[in-house]
Amino acid sequence: MSGGVDSSVTAALLHEAGYEVVGMTLQLYDQGEAMARKGACCAGQDIYDARRVADGMGFPHYVLDYESRFRDAVIEDFADAYARGETPIPCVRCNQTVKFTDLLTTARELDADALATGHYVRRTVEADGAPTLRRAVDDGKDQSYFLFATTHAQLDFLRFPLGDLDKSETRRQAQRLGLAIADKPDSQDICFVPDGDYARIVRRLRPEAAEPGEIVDRDGTVLGRHDGIIHYTIGQRRGLGIGGRDTSSEPLYVVRLEPESRRVVVGPRAALATPDILLDQVNWLGGTRLSDGPAKVLVKIRNTMTPVPAAVEATPLGDVEVRFEQPQHGVSPGQACVFYDPADASRVLGGGWIAPRRPQAA
């Protein structure tokens, strides 16, 4: 229970249905600091709101101190990724580690039969009894992209009661149930960066990522200087500080970040076209093995994009490679590539983290 509308309605609906509910809220920040955070989940006011919902419905509520674990598994990882020139997704890391590993373990220790969350995603069961992960009914709220790392074993224990609802219906349920948080705004941005200034966090934890350097074209010609690679992402066009065009008057984009030399490499949009990518830490929920040969999938390399056709396969070197049917633009290491079933686009087949390309042999 993060203290927001979604998790509160989840708990209240299950309680109303007759389940024995235990509310669990994660304290992810020092309480003195948390009380000052607005627009973030799992902060001081949110803990109070979650407890108020539990008290009103009449089920127990516990606050679990996960501050140290969250810092190590999510915040430090976030800073490390930016220092490597990657673009991280901390919400996926939080689901992958703190919520669906640590919190799930705690739920089992409480002798729970299931762990229910307020995520907008669906869990269905196949004829053979195997659970599957599917997109939410509400496309605008679907969170399947952020849950690609959920394993078969975790799906056995997880439940997602809001997967068949849209957000307006969730708020109607909150009002019907008399929850005081029915009109509470959704949390925005990254929960530990509620003001949107992620560079401030990275500068504090990894100051080397904020060191100035050169902006160069693909031939190494210096076009300008920057105030730290943390301010740039692959595919970025605006805010380059070099006029935004090369000698041919073609718009320039960030095509590569080189943290070792502190260089931002820019080029034309055509230089962003990527025919294939390598993935790390792949979670595969399909019925075959990736080593059996190419599997046709639909993929998303950004949460907001429409899935596109691709093939995924484990290579003899032990990598997992994704080959797009049409080259994709703005592919950034550190982002997620999520697989969907081409025969049933609602079904999630897993995914992995986009890895930097290995240097080509001379």
Score class of each variant (00 low, 15 high):
Gly267Pro: 09
Arg262Glu: 05
Ala40Thr: 00
Leu13Thr: 13
Val264Gln: 06
Asn303Lys: 13
Val312Leu: 07
Leu158Val: 11
Gln281Lys: 14
Asn283Val: 15
Val21Pro: 01
His119Ile: 12
Ile89Lys: 05
Leu298Asn: 03
Gly267Glu: 06
Ala34Ser: 15
Arg289Phe: 10
Leu223Asn: 06
Val63Asp: 10
Ile190Glu: 01
Tyr232Gly: 01
Thr315Val: 10
Glu20Trp: 01
Trp353Pro: 00
Asp197Gln: 11
Leu298Arg: 04
Ala311Pro: 01
Ser187Pro: 00
Gln236Val: 01
Ile229Ser: 04
Arg51Glu: 15
Val222Lys: 15
Leu165Gln: 13
Gly3Ser: 12
Ile47Lys: 02
Val63Pro: 12
Pro212Trp: 10
Leu223Glu: 10
Val312Arg: 08
Val282His: 08
Asp111Ile: 03
Gln27Cys: 10
Leu257Ile: 08
Asp55Gln: 13
Gln188Met: 09
Leu103Glu: 05
Val320Asp: 02
Phe100Asp: 09
Gly58Pro: 04
Phe339Ile: 02
Arg135Gly: 02
Thr132Arg: 15
Thr151Leu: 03
Gly85Trp: 04
Arg134Pro: 03
Gly243Asp: 15
Met24Ser: 05
Leu104Arg: 12
Asp55Ser: 14
Val254Lys: 04
Arg123Trp: 07
Glu86Met: 09
Ala210Gly: 14
Thr306Met: 10
Leu147Ala: 07
Arg200Phe: 05
Thr170Asp: 08
Asp55Leu: 14
Val222Ile: 14
Asp166Arg: 14
His152Tyr: 14
Ala209Tyr: 02
Pro194Arg: 03
Gln236Leu: 06
Gly224Lys: 06
Ser187Asp: 00
Ser249Val: 07
Arg84Gln: 09
Ala107Ser: 15
Phe148Asn: 08
Tyr82Asn: 05
Pro88Val: 01
His15Val: 05
Ala34Asn: 09
Val254Asn: 03
Gly287Lys: 10
Pro359Trp: 04
Leu285Asp: 12
Val322Leu: 13
Asp72Ala: 08
Phe148His: 15
Gln328Lys: 05
Val22Pro: 00
Leu110Gln: 15
Asp341Gln: 03
Val265Met: 01
Ala345Trp: 07
Arg204Ile: 04
Lys167Cys: 13
Ala174Arg: 02
Gly228Ala: 02
Glu321Tyr: 01
Ala311Gly: 02
Ala81Cys: 13
Gly318Leu: 09
Tyr120Pro: 10
Val255Ser: 01
Arg134Trp: 03
Lys141Phe: 02
Ala112Trp: 06
Thr274Asn: 09
Gln328Glu: 09
Lys141His: 10
Asn95Leu: 03
Leu349Arg: 07
Pro342Leu: 11
Lys38Ile: 00
Thr10His: 11
Pro342Gln: 13
Pro356Gly: 02
Arg206Leu: 02
Val63Asn: 10
Ala50Leu: 05
Leu64Phe: 15
Val216Met: 07
